[in-house]
Design a protein around this nucleic acid. Structure first.
Lengths: 196, 196
DNA sequence: ACTCAAATGTCGCTTAACTAACAAAAAAAT
DNA sequence: ATTTTTTTGTTAGTTAAGCGACATTTGAGT
């Protein structure tokens, strides 16, 4: 639709986001100043305000964009109308890990340690819950759906964070496979979901 | 002096050069179109013409800039007023190799194979000759100075090109050391220059 | 509590870079 | 050889981004 956005706008926004992510990894959100961003992005400080209201605005915009990418990737991948199962969740996990790997510096900055304050984690959890729920539609459950969703989402986040923190010690495929084994041998049966 | 060049100008020129070098490695000089450069640099084609007259102009400007950097580096390093000697030339070689390594993609594009047509090689030779000649001032020679300079420059270029072509098979220090050995055991004595 | 320095937002004014469209030159295709 | 397509330079008008300067706000240091 907006096929013809001015090149300068695209460039400026790109540079700002790139600079922002780099700075996040270098000095953490709080320590970043608008001038820092401007310097690293090679733009004038004023230009920043042409595109974002302030630092939190940039942070939110960046997070939302990143999560939107994740979300649409997940929607594509889980569009197959098969019911939820262990292998389905394993596939989901793999997709998420791959997506993260493609945007490493950003996830690293937002997921690790003290950075979790900014609500990124819970937004990401929400996405996972929704994705799983969509594939869960009319499956009869033996336990509370909300509880199950929360449980699954927590598991996902725990593994993801551990993985990022440990500098991708496994490939997405390997890790997802291990995750799948835990799932099928663990609580899934208890919930009445077939493990394949 | 020009402390305050407009940020946009700096950015544009940088992007153009970066894009140009990448394209040189991707498809070679002849195959590059101005639009290619504009696309990769994320600028409008018109902007290119605000900074360079045409493709050859950009090529020359880039080469001159690169060689100027090399030249000033060499002037700094060979400023020590010691007479020419094997170890001196070895040091010179090492400096050149290190300089090249810092600007790998550009040298790679300009020095290898068919690209040599553009006169980059001979310009670089010239710089080497001048540098060596400066350190040669009033040393009495037993053979023609011009011949000696041409010989040395050719040796340098031969080694450099071989090194770039073979993807930096040695470290600059190692290669320079081997070069030094060839020098001192070879033609230097014949020219009446002490080998230390 | 007070001071000074640094960072934030916002404002005109100027300029580089944008879009779009053009004719001429070069390459490719028929 | 001749049409078609691509690439080249160039122009005119518009817009994003530059610069400098300003009043506030915020934070550290004393």
């Amino acid at each position: 639709m907006n096929k013809k956005t001015d090149l300068r706008i695209i460039r400026s926004k790109h540079s700002i986001k790139r600079a922002f992510i780099e700075l996040l990894n270098e000095k953490g959100y709080e320590g970043i100043t608008i001038q820092d961003i401007a310097d690293k992005a090679m733009i004038n400080r004023n230009t920043f305000y042409l595109h974002y209201q302030n630092k939190p605005d940039l942070l939110n915009a960046s997070m939302d964009e990143l999560l939107e990418e994740l979300n649409s990737t997940l929607n594509l991948c889980s569009s197959s109308k098969s019911p939820v199962s262990g292998s389905k969740l394993e596939q989901l996990m793999q997709t998420i890990l791959e997506r993260i790997q493609d945007s490493t510096p950003f996830y690293k900055a937002l997921l690790l340690d003290e950075n979790r304050i900014y609500g990124f984690q819970s937004k990401m959890e929400e996405i996972i819950k929704n994705t799983v729920e969509d594939g869960l539609d009319n499956t009869p459950l033996k336990i509370s759906k909300e509880l199950l969703l929360q449980y699954i989402a927590s598991t996902f986040m725990g593994i993801v964070i551990w993985w990022v923190k440990n500098d991708y010690s496994y490939t997405p495929k390997e890790l997802a496979s291990q995750f799948g084994k835990i799932l099928t041998h663990g609580h899934l049966k208890a919930a009445g979901i077939s493990d394949d």
